[in-house]
């Protein structure tokens, strides 16, 4: 909780700043609209958190989101009746891509940076090949409801976000969650305590794939079908997680902070937008944030090392 506080403070300040410029933001409808817009990224960041806290990266999620949306549009092609089996298929695709990322990273020992970078290119290329550059088909109304519809006054995506967030928090409190963080902190110690570190990491990638699938479903409804829908989302998700104070390299940080990081990032974009600063600057802002956040984390590390010097080679031989 101690480590979650800073990002919550930053978030509160940004929300207050938005409210100052745009009083509508304080009304339930205004605030819910903001959360609705943020929901896909927050869910994606929660998925990315599992991977990062275990000491890995998942760069494939942006492409995966695009794949989900493009595949959904083509398979549904406007037929309402196709909605449900396509939804199941989309989740399965997300799980499968996560599984592949995890197995390649752990069993073949390919660094996840490379595994998921490769997966990102493979998926982008596949989408391009399959669509010929322009996505075909259309989503059904039922499908689009998740991204833009309401249940009473509350958007569906906000409800899905709440459910996903609660699941993520519970998961991190479970034995699996504690094993995951321990693996990210000290893989060797975890393995020698009986943790199946490979299986644990694979599950983290699978969760990230599932989060990307859900994000794709929400974004398809919210933003519509395009071959660029997931572009750059992997970096937004990583930026959000790092902004939440989660250490790259694993072992440190909470999923609540990661999700708060995503909300903060979205709030920042909203604010920039309100001040009329070009949306094109979003990438630049993310770049600055990710470097700054990691630098702050790195500054703490040398101080830690100074306090905990590596064990001296003892002259212990007889016995």
């Amino acid at each position: 909780m101690k480590r979650t506080l800073p990002i919550l403070v930053v978030l509160a300040v940004l929300l207050a700043a938005i409210a100052l410029v745009n009083p509508f933001f304080l009304e339930p409808a205004g605030f819910l609209a903001f959360v609705k817009r943020a929901a896909p990224l927050v869910i994606l960041a929660a998925g990315q958190y599992f991977v990062i806290v275990s000491g890995e990266f998942d760069l494939s999620v942006g492409s995966l989101v695009t794949v989900e949306v493009v595949v959904a549009a083509r398979l549904i092609d406007g037929q309402e009746s196709a909605t449900w089996w396509v939804l199941l298929l989309l989740i399965a695709v997300g799980l499968l891509v996560g599984l592949l990322n995890g197995v390649v990273t752990t069993a073949l020992r390919v660094p996840s940076f490379i595994t998921t970078l490769g997966m990102m290119l493979i998926l982008s290329g596949a989408v391009f090949l399959w669509t010929g550059g322009a996505p075909r088909g259309a989503l059904s109304e039922a499908f689009r409801t998740f991204g833009r519809g309401n249940l009473g006054p509350v958007p569906w995506s906000v409800l899905i976000l709440l459910a996903a967030g609660a699941a993520a928090i519970l998961l991190m409190r479970s034995d699996f969650g504690r094993r995951l963080v321990a693996t990210g902190d000290n893989e060797r110690a975890a393995a020698l305590s009986g943790v199946r570190v490979a299986r644990t990491r694979i599950l983290a990638f699978v969760l990230s794939g599932a989060a990307a699938a859900i994000t794709g479903i929400l974004l398809g409804g919210f933003a519509g079908v395009s071959a660029q829908v997931g572009q750059g989302l992997e970096f937004s998700a990583i930026t959000a997680v790092v902004l939440g104070g989660v250490a790259l390299g694993g072992g440190r940080g909470s999923v609540v902070a990661a999700m708060a990081g995503a909300l903060t990032l979205e709030a920042l974009f909203t604010l920039l937008n309100l001040y009329g600063i070009s949306g094109a600057l979003e990438f630049t802002v993310q770049g600055v944030i990710i470097i700054a956040a990691v630098a702050v984390g790195a500054l703490r590390l040398p101080a830690w090392l100074a306090k905990h010097p590596p064990r001296k080679q003892g002259d212990t031989h007889v016995a």
């Binding site: 321990a182 000290n186 305590s193 943790v195």
Partner: peptide, 24 residues
């Protein structure tokens, strides 16, 4: 070597003490 092989140093005493039980 308890730092390299015994403990997840950035986790709590509780999480370390329960690691074997949680894993197995």
């Amino acid at each position: 070597d308890r730092k390299a092989e015994g403990l997840a140093l950035r986790q709590s005493v509780r999480d370390n003490a329960l690691l074997v039980a949680r894993a197995t």
